[in-house]
Simulated scan of single mutants.
Amino acid sequence: MLIIPYEIETLQQERPWANWLLVAACTLTSLFFLFDAECAQALTPLVLQGFSLTGLLGNVLLHQDLIHLVGNMLFLWVFGNAICMNIGNLRYLAVFVGCTLLAGVAQVLLDGSSTVGASGAINGIVGMVLAMYPLNRVYLFWFFAIRGGSFSCQAWVIILAWFAFDVWGALGGGDMVAYWAHLGGFLGGVSIGLSGLHLGWFQLICYDNRSLLQILRKEPLEG
């Protein structure tokens, strides 16, 4: 079954131009990497290989094929916009870079294979959604064989299902997927989200349900 998110229930506070720029940069760079041999050669240093800072930061701009690119950009658009338009564009860029580094370090330490793709950083943004909006609803399309439809659920349900899938994949040997980058980015994003809420860097509004931090502390939402 294929499950594709298309919206998160949260109120837009500002235009998420930083996330739009990230989507555009990843898309354009990946297309050059995939379809222009000379550009692909020039972009090789951006591949994650060891602890090169260029690779640790630049691998998010490259993707293995069009399916990889489209899937990642869809998730980045949905989850990235939800976070960016609520924490602010500059904070969002800092968070994205942090998740990128944490995902890359986890992949190098626990797997060691070279990789490309924004999925580790995107999992970090998904982790932030779990920290900030676990009870808000996510709307999704589903496809199975020749049938399809849509449904919604609270964010924590689908996010923890994806997390469990990544754990299963990582423990099962990877299957050519950078599962350790997914897990490193996700846990980093949850940690950043909880820390930002605790320190007051990120604020919820009355429209949103309780954050994960408030649930753990058994606190009500402050309107």
Score class of each variant (00 low, 15 high):
Tyr139Thr: 03
Tyr92Ser: 06
Ala25Ser: 13
Leu28Trp: 08
Leu34Glu: 02
Pro134Asn: 04
Val47Ala: 07
Gly104Arg: 02
Leu22Lys: 00
Trp77Asn: 05
Leu160Arg: 01
Leu56Arg: 04
Arg147Ile: 12
Val108Tyr: 03
Thr44Ser: 15
Glu222Arg: 02
Ile158Asn: 00
Asn86Glu: 09
Leu61Met: 07
Leu93Gln: 03
Asn59Ile: 01
Ser30His: 02
Phe35Ala: 00
Met73Gly: 05
His182Met: 11
Met73Tyr: 01
Met132Cys: 15
Leu69Gly: 01
Cys99Gly: 04
Gly173Ala: 07
Trp20Leu: 13
Ile205Phe: 06
Met128Ala: 02
Thr10Glu: 14
Pro134Ser: 05
Met1Cys: 11
Ser152Pro: 04
Phe163Asn: 04
Val138Phe: 08
Leu199Pro: 01
Gly185Val: 14
Val157Met: 07
Asn123Arg: 05
Val23Lys: 03
Asp111Glu: 13
Asn209Thr: 02
Tyr133Glu: 06
Leu93Pro: 01
Thr100Met: 00
Phe96Lys: 01
Ala121Glu: 06
Ala18Pro: 07
Ala40Ile: 00
Val177Ala: 10
Ile215Asp: 00
Arg91Asn: 12
Trp17Asn: 01
Phe32Cys: 08
Arg210Asp: 00
Thr10Ser: 15
Gly188Lys: 09
Ile215Ser: 02
Arg15Pro: 08
Val97Ala: 13
Val167Lys: 07
Leu199Met: 13
Phe32Trp: 09
Asn123Ile: 02
Gly55Ile: 08
Arg15Gln: 14
Gln64Thr: 06
Phe51Ala: 02
Gly184Phe: 07
Tyr6His: 14
Phe163Lys: 06
Gly127Ile: 09
Thr54His: 03
Phe151Lys: 03
Ala42Cys: 02
Trp77Ile: 12
Ala161Asn: 03
Tyr133Thr: 05
Val157Trp: 04
